[in-house]
Design a protein around this nucleic acid. Structure first.
Length: 690
DNA sequence: ACGCCGCGTATTTTT
DNA sequence: TACGCGGCGT
C-alpha cells in the first residue's frame, strides 16, 4: 500500500475538524470535543498517524487516560492496527500507572526501597487516626476532612513545609481543620516514608518532583516521549498538568520548536473538581503555549437532537470556559420521558419494569440499557428488582472486591511479605486470625520498634524482645516472624501452592466461616478469597517477570475491573454517573433527580458546586443515544424514616417541549391494547424458546 | 486475651 | 442497612 493510500485510510470517515486534529503534529494541540463527538476516534487515529505517517517510534509515544476502562478501550481499538512490537512498546495507560512505572525505575531517587507498596485510602484513614490519637484528636469526622485536605495539598504539589506558609488558605474548610491538617500532614509523610509506603496521590506527586529535581530522571523520562496524548484533559489536577509539562518539555540545550502533545477535553464534562481537578487547565494551555492550536469538535455522532438540545439547554445555565453547541444529523428521535414516583422503591420497581417491558417488545440486547444514579447505594433497590425479574445486570464500582475486609486481610499478608516495613499491613494481620498476641503486647512492641528504629515485623525477631516480654510472648512473636518468611519463600517459589499453604496453616477459611454471622456470608467470603487467588494467578500468568510487589501493584491499580465471570452474557448496566463518563447506551435511565441528590446536598453551598452538579447531569444525559428517561420521586426511605424530596432544579432548566410525561393516565382502551400487545409478545417468546 | 452484645453513626462522586 | 467501636463478661 502506498503512503498516500495509508494516510487516507487513517483519516477515513473523519470530518474535516477531526482530520485536522489528527494531522496536525507540528504544534501543541487542544481538541475541544463535546460529548459524543468522536474524541476516542481522534486519539486512536492520531496514534496511528504519529506512528505510521510521522514515523515516531512506538516507544516514544504515550497516550494517557484517567480510567482503566478508557485505557483498555483504547488498547482494544488500536490492537488490530498495530504490530506486535508496536503494541508492546506503546504506552497506553492511566496517569497513575505511568507514575508507578517511573517510580519503580527510580525508587532510589525517591527515597524508597525497591519493594515499596501502595497504601489504599481506607488504610490512609487508619494511619491518620493513629496520628490523631497521638495528637489528641479523636473526632473521626475531623480525621476524614484531614485526609481530604492532605490529598488536596498533594494534588497541588504543596509540601508540608509549604502548607504552613500558605497565604490564601484552602477555601473549603474551617481554619482550625486546616491548621490541624498542616500539623498531621508532616507526621503522615514521615510515617509513609518510614513504612516504605506511598499513597495514590504520591503516584503523581513523586514522579513530578523527580522530574523537577532529579537529573537522572530528567535525562531519562524527561526526554522519553516525543508526543503525548491526554484524554479527558478537563479532569487534570495541578500535579498532572505539571507532570505533563515536564514530560513534553523540549530539551533547553537543543531547542525544538514546540513541545508536542495533544490534549482532548470538554469543560462541560468536568466532574472531578472535588478531587482537585482544575478545568482552568484548558485555558492555561493557551497561556503556556501561545502556539497552541485549538480545534473544536461540535458534530455529535451519538444522540438524537432532542437529547442534545435538552442537554445544551441545561448546560447553558453554566458559564462555560469555551462555548460549544452540539448538533447531530441523527434526527429528532423520541421525546424525553419524564417520570415521577411516590418514592424511591416505587421508582426502582417501575424503572426495572419499564426496561423489562421495552426489552421484551423490541427484542433488544440487555447491553443497550443503562441506569444512572448519583450514589452507589441507589443501586440496591434496582438490584433487588432485577434479581426478581431474573434479568442479568452488572453493577460497576460500588463496594469493590478490594474493600472487603477478608480480601484486605489476605492482601495484607502478601503485602507484608513483599514489604517487611509495611507496619500498616503488619498491624492488620499480626493477630488475625488470632494467635494470642493481644493489644497490650502490640502496644509495647510498637514502643520498642520506635525506640530501636525497626519495623514492627523486624522487631519480632529482635533479641531485645527478651528484656520486655515473657518467654512465651517472645516465642509467639519470633514464630510469626519465621513463619511469614517461610511462607514468603514458598509463595515466591510458587504462588498457587504458597497461598494454599498460607490459607491452610492459618485455618483461614475455618476462621472466616466460624466468625461469620450467617453461613452464607461466610461462604461468600471464602468464594471471594478464591476469586482473589485466581485473579493474582492470572496477573502473574499474563505479565511475565512480575514479582510479588508488582502483582499487588497491578491488582491495586489496573485490575480493578468488576466480575469478569459472565462477561459474555448481555446485561443491564447500573452505575454512578461518574462511572459512566466516556460510555454510551441506546437507552439511558437517569433516576433520583431530586434536590439533595442531583444537585447533591454537599454541593449546594455555592454556585461553583451547583455548576459541577449541573455538568454531572449533563454528562448523564449525553450518554443516551436513542431514548432518555429522567425520573424523580417524592419521598425516600432512609435509616431514619421517611424523607420528603423536591424535584431537581435542573428539571426546570430543560424546556418542557422536549418532554413527554409518561405518567399520564391511559384510557381503558389504550390499557387493553397495551396488555394484548404484551401478552402476544410473551407468547412469541415462548414459541421462540421451544 | 477474646468474644459477644448493643449502640451509634454514616452515605458523594474515584485513581 | 451495615459496619465499627467500645464496654463488659468469661
Amino acid at each position: 500500500m502506498s503512503d498516500n493510500a495509508n494516510s487516507a485510510k487513517i483519516l477515513h470517515g473523519l470530518n474535516p475538524q477531526q482530520q485536522q486534529a489528527v494531522k496536525n503534529c507540528q504544534q501543541p494541540c487542544l481538541v475541544l470535543a463535546g460529548a459524543g463527538c468522536g474524541k476516542t476516534s481522534v486519539i486512536t487515529r492520531k496514534i496511528l498517524w504519529l506512528l505510521h505517517e510521522e514515523k515516531i517510534p512506538s516507544n516514544r509515544l504515550a497516550a494517557v487516560t484517567f480510567t482503566n476502562k478508557a485505557a483498555n478501550e483504547m488498547q482494544s481499538r488500536l490492537k488490530k492496527h498495530l504490530s506486535a512490537t508496536e503494541r508492546k512498546n506503546l504506552t497506553v495507560c492511566t496517569f497513575h500507572s505511568l507514575g508507578l512505572s517511573l517510580l519503580k525505575q527510580n525508587y532510589n531517587e525517591a527515597n524508597l526501597s525497591a519493594n515499596f507498596s501502595l497504601i489504599d485510602p481506607q488504610d490512609v484513614q487508619k494511619l491518620l487516626k493513629e496520628i490523631g490519637d497521638e495528637q489528641g484528636v479523636y473526632d473521626l469526622a475531623q480525621i476524614r476532612q484531614v485526609s481530604f485536605i492532605i490529598s488536596r495539598y498533594k494534588n497541588q504539589n504543596i509540601s508540608p513545609e509549604k502548607a504552613f506558609q500558605l497565604e490564601d488558605k484552602l477555601d473549603f474548610a474551617e481554619p482550625e481543620i486546616i491548621e490541624l491538617s498542616n500539623r498531621i500532614y508532616s507526621y503522615y509523610e514521615q510515617k509513609l516514608q518510614a513504612y516504605n509506603l506511598i499513597d495514590f496521590d504520591d503516584l503523581l506527586l513523586k514522579p513530578l518532583q523527580l522530574l523537577q529535581h532529579s537529573e537522572i530522571v530528567k535525562n531519562d523520562w524527561g526526554k522519553r516521549f516525543q508526543h503525548i496524548l491526554i484524554d479527558e484533559y478537563q479532569d487534570t489536577n495541578e500535579c498532572q498538568y505539571q507532570l505533563l509539562i515536564q514530560l513534553v518539555k523540549p530539551d533547553p540545550t537543543n531547542p525544538l520548536p514546540d513541545p508536542q502533545f495533544t490534549a482532548v477535553g470538554d469543560d462541560n464534562q468536568s466532574i472531578y473538581e472535588w478531587r482537585g481537578a482544575n478545568p482552568q487547565n484548558l485555558n492555561q494551555l493557551k497561556v503556556d503555549f501561545p502556539n497552541l492550536e485549538i480545534i473544536p469538535l461540535e458534530q455529535n455522532y451519538r444522540s438524537t437532537n432532542t437529547i442534545l438540545n435538552a442537554s445544551n439547554a441545561l448546560i447553558e445555565n453554566n458559564q462555560s470556559i469555551i462555548a460549544k453547541k452540539l448538533w447531530s444529523t441523527l434526527g429528532d428521535g423520541n421525546a424525553i420521558n419524564l417520570r415521577h414516583f411516590p418514592n424511591n422503591i416505587e421508582e426502582a420497581n417501575k424503572i426495572t419494569q419499564a426496561i423489562a417491558h421495552h426489552h421484551l417488545i423490541n427484542k433488544t440486547s440487555l447491553n443497550d440499557y443503562c441506569v444512572l444514579y448519583r450514589s452507589n447505594y441507589q443501586a440496591e433497590p434496582l438490584e433487588k428488582n432485577l434479581k426478581q425479574l431474573d434479568l442479568a445486570y452488572t453493577v460497576s464500582g460500588g463496594i469493590s472486591l478490594f474493600n472487603r475486609s477478608e480480601i484486605k486481610t489476605v492482601l495484607a499478608y502478601l503485602k507484608l511479605m513483599a514489604n517487611p516495613q509495611d507496619n500498616v499491613s503488619f498491624l492488620r494481620i499480626i493477630n488475625t486470625p488470632k494467635r494470642e498476641i493481644g493489644d497490650k503486647t502490640i502496644q509495647q512492641l510498637i514502643q520498642y520498634a520506635e525506640n530501636t528504629d525497626l519495623s514492627l515485623f523486624e522487631a519480632c525477631n529482635s533479641n531485645g524482645l527478651y528484656g520486655i516480654f515473657t518467654e512465651k510472648i517472645c516465642q509467639r512473636l519470633n514464630h510469626f516472624h519465621s513463619w511469614i518468611n517461610e511462607k514468603r519463600n514458598k509463595i515466591l517459589d510458587d504462588l498457587k501452592t504458597g497461598m494454599d499453604t498460607l490459607l491452610e496453616e492459618t485455618h483461614f477459611f475455618d476462621w472466616i466461616i466460624a466468625q461469620a454471622k450467617h453461613k452464607k456470608t461466610g461462604q461468600n467470603q471464602v468464594e471471594r478469597i478464591k476469586r482473589l487467588q485466581q485473579w493474582l494467578l492470572n496477573i502473574q500468568k499474563y505479565n511475565e517477570g512480575y514479582d510479588l510487589a508488582d502483582i499487588i501493584h497491578h491488582l491495586n491499580l489496573v485490575e480493578r475491573l468488576e466480575d469478569q465471570d459472565n462477561k459474555d452474557q448481555a446485561s443491564i448496566s447500573l452505575m454512578t454517573i461518574h462511572n459512566a463518563k466516556g460510555l454510551e447506551f441506546p437507552y439511558v435511565y437517569l433516576i433520583g433527580l431530586e434536590e439533595g441528590s442531583i444537585p447533591h446536598y454537599n454541593n449546594l453551598q455555592n454556585e461553583r458546586g451547583i455548576a459541577e452538579e449541573r455538568r454531572l447531569a449533563y454528562v448523564a444525559m449525553t450518554r443516551a443515544k436513542k431514548q432518555l428517561t429522567l425520573s424523580h420521586s417524592a419521598n425516600k426511605q432512609t435509616h431514619k424514616g421517611n424523607v420528603k424530596l423536591t424535584p431537581s432544579r435542573f428539571l426546570k432548566e430543560i424546556p418542557q417541549q422536549y418532554f413527554i410525561d409518561t405518567n399520564k393516565q391511559l384510557t381503558p382502551e389504550e390499557k387493553k391494547q397495551q396488555r394484548e400487545f404484551y401478552i402476544n409478545r410473551m407468547k412469541e417468546m415462548f414459541v421462540e424458546k421451544e
